[in-house]
Every structure is written in C-alpha cells, then in structure tokens.
Simulated scan of single mutants.
Amino acid sequence: MNIPAIGLGTYRLKGQVLTDSVHNALELGYRAFDTAQIYENEADLGEAIASGQVPREQLFLTTKVWISNFHHDDLLASLRESLAKLRTDHVDLALIHWPSPNNEVPMREYLGALREAKALGLTKAIGVSNFTIDLTRQAIEILGADAIATNQIEVHPYLQNRALIAYLREQGIHVTAFMSLAYGAVLKDPVIQAIADKHQASAAQVALAWALQQGYAVIPSSTKRENLAGNLQATQLRLDDEDMARIADLDRGERVANPGIAPAWD
C-alpha cells in the first residue's frame, strides 16, 4: 500500500473548525485525512468530507482504535461505529493507537481482531502507532512485517527516533511521523529559521521537508488556509546535505506526546 506522503491531521479539531479546515484542504489538493476514535471528531470529519465534493475513492482515510476497544468483539464493533461516523464502508488504514497499557489485552487478541477487520473489508490496510522496537517485533511475530502498513510515531527535529526508525526500515515498515512541528517549538529554532531563509521557505516547510526527504509520511494539522497551502508545498522543497546535517544535530530526545499509557520508549 502506498500511504500518501502528506495528509491532514485532525487532532484537537472539531465542529465548524474541522469542517472549514477539511474543506480548505480538499480545495487545495489534500486527499489524505487522519483521525482517531479518541479525537471524538470522526462524525465531524465524515460530514465535512461528504459535503466536500471529492469522491470517496479519491480519498485516503486513516483512523485509530482506542485502547478501551481492544478486546476482539469490541474492536470490530468500534471500527464499524467509526465507519458509520465517517460515512464510509471502509477506511484505507486502521491503526492500533497505543499498545495496550501493561498488556491488559494481549497483543495477539487485538492485532488478530485488526487482521480480521481487514479480512472483512472494514479497512484496506492495518498498522500500529506508538510501538517501540520490542513491541513492533512482537507485532511482526503475530502479523508478519508485510501486513503492517506503517508505524505512526512522534518524529520531528527535536525527537528523531533513530533506533526505532532504523529497525522499521530494516523490517520494511513505513514510518508515519506525527507532531512534525512539536506543537510549534521547532518553528522558533534558529537553525530551522536560517535554513528557511536560505530557501525562501517557511520554518514549517523546512521541518516537513526534512521528514519527507527521509521517506516518512507527515500529517500536520492546521486551521488556516495559508498554512495548509504552505504545508502542502513542503513536498516541493529540497533540502541539501548541509541542511539535513544541521537538522540532524538538533536531536535532543524531546518528546511531546508522552501520556501515562505510553510504553517504555526506546
């Protein structure tokens, strides 16, 4: 499966704010949209897409199953509920949002249910999110690496996640980067700003281009049309080796998404 290089993340977007963002994104050329059960905006996204006048077959929809729905029957029922909210008969990608905390639900149960969801046609592809090297290894033992379309993980210049990404590449598993701008922190970085000035680009475009050039998919969120347009243009920005080396030096293991349910990070 080819996962689109750039999509619109919808974390924290709801109601009219989400609708406006999605409509602007569709008009600008976005075709991939990322949501999750815990975002409580699947119905809003479904409505926005339905009124957006782009055929469903041209879109790539991702949702993520929340930890409270990991038992076999619950997972399948929750995914069907997600589809109803999204007004579609399938998503293109269904992910496990976080590994089950303290292994409360065995991985074999919830990944087996996710594999069944794919067999039932509820999703075209399956994958994981926030999985460490060890957890990914376990997932590969259950599903096989070929069945795991992506591992969606936090990646940005301040958290480059090198060990995990090296392992994923070794296994042929695609990386989807979230929090690409670290809630805006990297936009203020003098190195990022200097590279942006050099290329007559924005700091956001530099941070996204850095991820895109390494083959990651990115799903930045924005409510402003000009930022949505600018983010999309990051696909055209080429950073040189010096730029990439300077950004590589910014890695400081600074994690933004680290809730109490998080696994023991690599």
Rank of each mutant, 00 (worst) to 15 (best):
Q214A: 08
K198E: 10
V17D: 04
D34T: 07
W98R: 04
P101F: 03
L45N: 00
D89R: 11
S180H: 03
Q37N: 04
H72K: 13
I96F: 01
V206C: 09
T132Y: 03
V105C: 03
L18D: 00
F70L: 15
H71A: 12
E226W: 08
D89H: 14
A25I: 03
F131Y: 15
I195A: 00
N103V: 10
E254C: 02
L83A: 05
E27D: 15
S180M: 05
E40T: 12
G253R: 11
E242Q: 12
S78R: 02
K14L: 14
T35I: 13
L120Q: 11
L228R: 02
L187N: 11
I153A: 09
S129V: 02
N227A: 11
A211Y: 04
A163I: 06
L95R: 00
D249Q: 15
N231C: 02
L228T: 00
T123F: 01
A113M: 10
L26C: 09
H71Y: 13
Q205E: 11
P220I: 01
N103L: 10
N24E: 13
I6S: 04
A182E: 06
E27V: 12
A229I: 02
F70W: 03
T132I: 01
A203V: 11
K224Y: 13
L8N: 01
K188S: 12
I6A: 03
L228V: 04
N2E: 15
P220D: 09
H199I: 05
V91P: 01
I192W: 07
Y167H: 15
L187Y: 05
Q53C: 08
V22Q: 09
L120A: 10
A48K: 00
L83D: 03
E116C: 11
L135H: 00
Q37G: 02
P106Y: 08
W265L: 14
R31W: 09
A166Y: 02
N69L: 07
K198V: 04
D20I: 12
S180P: 14
L208V: 01
R252T: 02
G144D: 05
E42A: 12
Q152N: 08
T19V: 06
V54R: 10
Q233I: 00
A43C: 05
G112Y: 08
Q152I: 05
L76K: 01
N103W: 12
T35M: 07
I3D: 08
M179C: 14
T63G: 00
N231D: 06
V17R: 09
S222Y: 01
A84Y: 08
L83Q: 06
A182F: 01
M1V: 11
E47T: 14
T35C: 10
A203Y: 01
E154N: 11
L111Q: 10
P157N: 12
R31G: 09
R115E: 13
T35A: 12
W98A: 06
R115G: 10
A196C: 00
I6L: 10
G112F: 08
G46V: 05
G15H: 02
I126S: 10
Q58V: 04
E141R: 08
E47V: 14
A145C: 03
A117F: 01
G121T: 09
V54T: 14
A43G: 04
A166P: 00
V54C: 10
D74K: 15
V22W: 06
N102T: 06
E170C: 03
T63R: 00
A125Y: 14
I219D: 07
S68W: 11
D146E: 15
A84D: 13
H71N: 13
Y110P: 09
N231A: 04
P4F: 06
K14S: 13
R137S: 07
N103E: 15
N227R: 15
D74L: 15
